[in-house]
């Protein structure tokens, strides 16, 4: 299935906004593991996922053409 990936802040410096083909990844836990394997820099960062504009608080099923956003915390002022 295809999903749209959107990232922000420092994460956008190494993960571009893109459509990606996901095979064998059914839920957000598996997706998180996939992301951290693809982009090891994420492992040492704080970030939050949002699935179809809703914060992911527990493992959630990902369906075709979903949008997943990856958001780091900002503190600057």
């Amino acid at each position: 299935m295809e999903i749209e990936l959107i990232s922000f802040g420092k994460i956008a410096e190494f993960i571009n906004n893109q459509n990606i083909e996901l095979d064998g990844i059914a839920d957000t836990d598996a997706f998180k593991q996939y992301l951290e394997n693809q982009f090891p820099a994420l492992k040492s960062m704080k970030y939050k996922l949002a699935l179809n504009k809703n914060i992911v608080q527990e493992n959630t099923e990902i369906t075709n053409s979903a949008t997943i956003a990856i958001m780091p915390p900002f503190s600057g002022g």
């Binding site: 922000f8 802040g9 420092k10 915390p73 900002f74 600057g76």
Partner: peptide
């Protein structure tokens, strides 16, 4: 409100609405 690079974040916490009881920053991070 917070900024980083060319981006910003904006939110209102500790304020319930008709759908959700109030949330706070730790619900995200």
């Amino acid at each position: 409100a917070a900024v980083s690079g060319f981006e910003g974040q904006l939110a209102i916490f500790n304020t319930p609405d008709h759908l959700t009881p109030s949330t706070n920053y730790r619900d995200i991070f």
